[in-house]
């Protein structure tokens, strides 16, 4: 564990708490893509079910349980408790365009051709693009509540912090994980446009609005 990874994980944790806070206090999931949230459930289940056969640390296991549990709970809130506030007509990204390529990529790029490793690769590839339905929705509506942008910023910062973590691990431990690094760089890249607007507008107290 190093500081970059710890702060990255905490940022990931914070993003989920911010999202839960937004939904609970506004009693609404307006502006949140159900498809992105469903993809995160798939990502966490595919990757973290290894907690039944691989023990790393209490920290690692507790985080895995939290990510699976909280993502399922968010899906429940969107699908049942606050269903009327969820508008599927603006959540139109076709997720099969993400699922199918990620499935193919995971069959080609994995560290061992066995179900658990293929699932791990699949989850890494899927996570890197899971935010696209959400960003697509943002692009369509052209604006977002400040709290939604804080959620997205924390989520983007999480993966961005993993990059210095990998560089640090390369020099201190000599390990490199080409699948995670490639997908992680792609994932962080997807946030660059968003980050630009977030840091130049939202953090200056302006509304998050995309140019028409």
């Amino acid at each position: 564990m190093n500081l970059f990874r710890l702060l990255g994980d905490l940022s990931h944790l914070a993003s989920i708490l911010v999202l839960l806070h937004k939904i609970q206090t506004s009693r609404s999931c307006r502006g949140i893509s159900f498809k992105t949230q469903a993809l995160y459930v798939a990502v966490f289940v595919a990757r973290y079910l290894d907690l039944f056969w691989r023990y790393i640390s209490l920290y690692n296991s507790a985080m895995k349980v939290f990510f699976i549990g909280s993502s399922c709970y968010i899906l429940y809130l969107m699908k049942y408790r606050y269903r009327p506030t969820n508008d599927p007509s603006i959540d139109t990204f076709r997720i099969e365009y993400l699922l199918v390529p990620c499935a193919i990529l995971s069959l080609i790029f994995n560290y061992n051709f066995m179900p658990t490793e293929i699932l791990w690769s699949f989850s890494i590839f899927l996570e890197s693009v899971a935010i696209l339905p959400q960003l697509f929705m943002l692009q369509r509506t052209g604006e977002a509540e400040a709290i939604t942008t804080h959620y997205l910023a924390a989520l983007g910062i999480y993966r961005a912090l993993y990059i210095p973590n990998w560089i640090y691990r390369y020099f201190t431990e000599g390990v490199i994980d080409p699948i995670a690094v490639t997908a992680g760089i792609v994932q962080t890249g997807l946030y660059l446009d968003f980050f630009y607007v977030y840091f130049t507008k939202v953090l200056q107290g302006q509304k998050f609005e995309l140019p028409a």
Binding site: R5, M63, E173, G174, V175, I176, D177, P178
Partner: peptide, 10 residues
């Protein structure tokens, strides 16, 4: 470097 097979990251 070699790839970590332990998947110790989240």
């Amino acid at each position: 470097g070699s790839p970590p097979s332990s998947h110790d990251e989240l």
